[in-house]
Simulated scan of single mutants.
Amino acid sequence: MSKLIYLVACTVDRFIARKDGSFDFFLMEGEHVADLLSNFPETIPGHLRGTLGITADNQHFDTVLMGRRTYEVGVKEGITNPYPHMKQHLFSRTFQQSPDPAVELVSSDPVTFVQELKQQPSKNIWLCGGGDLATVLFPAIDEMILKVHPFLLGSGIPLFSGIIPLTSLELTDSKIYENGFMLLHYRVNHFGSYSSPI
């Protein structure tokens, strides 16, 4: 059974982008970049893979899920097929049809769709954003991998844009780089709860 993994870049105060969707403040240089390219080559959009010399096969994911606002970041640059090396699913109730035949438009219940997707033989499923979709899909998220950049944004699009229940996370792996970047792996314990404050 596949896992749904929310792998996303964020600031220390857990914003994944400015309110307008831009994220040009994230660190694009440093030793963490080589690690990310090596460990998660499939998360690099198709139009950048040649420039970055990425030829590696998909390591963790063969399916990517996107919310409308996340997808439209690429559309504004003329990119309608951002991850041609993966199965792409766009969740939106405002699009009447997919802007690209390689991207499947999903307007049905997201959680039900993902639970069915998990049953199919494949690698894991990458939830790349955004905060609205992550909130809706929270019950189906198995793991979170946060690429934490050493910035405070103050406001913007949060990791989860809506209300989610208090949930315990198990830190399964972590790495802190000299430039302050942190890569944090968590297992989501949906059955974990707190009976009293400590």
Results as ranks from 00 to 15, higher is better:
A140C: 07
T70H: 08
S107C: 05
V12P: 01
N179W: 02
P197F: 15
N179S: 10
M182N: 14
R69L: 14
Y6N: 00
L4M: 02
P165W: 05
H185Y: 14
K19F: 14
Q119K: 14
T172L: 01
G156L: 06
S108E: 12
H89F: 09
F113M: 02
M182K: 15
I198D: 11
F95A: 03
I44H: 02
T55F: 05
P165G: 03
L152G: 07
F25E: 11
D142E: 10
I145G: 05
H190V: 00
S107F: 01
R187I: 00
F26E: 14
F191T: 15
V73G: 03
A140S: 00
P101L: 09
F151H: 15
V106H: 06
D20Q: 04
S122K: 10
G156S: 08
K87C: 06
R18G: 13
L117Q: 04
F23N: 08
D35R: 12
G67C: 01
E178A: 14
I164A: 01
G192N: 03
V188I: 03
Y194I: 05
T172E: 03
F26K: 08
R93L: 13
N58P: 10
Y177I: 11
F191C: 08
F15A: 10
S196Q: 13
K118M: 06
L27G: 09
A134N: 02
G21Q: 13
F191M: 13
L159V: 08
T43M: 15
I125P: 10
P101E: 10
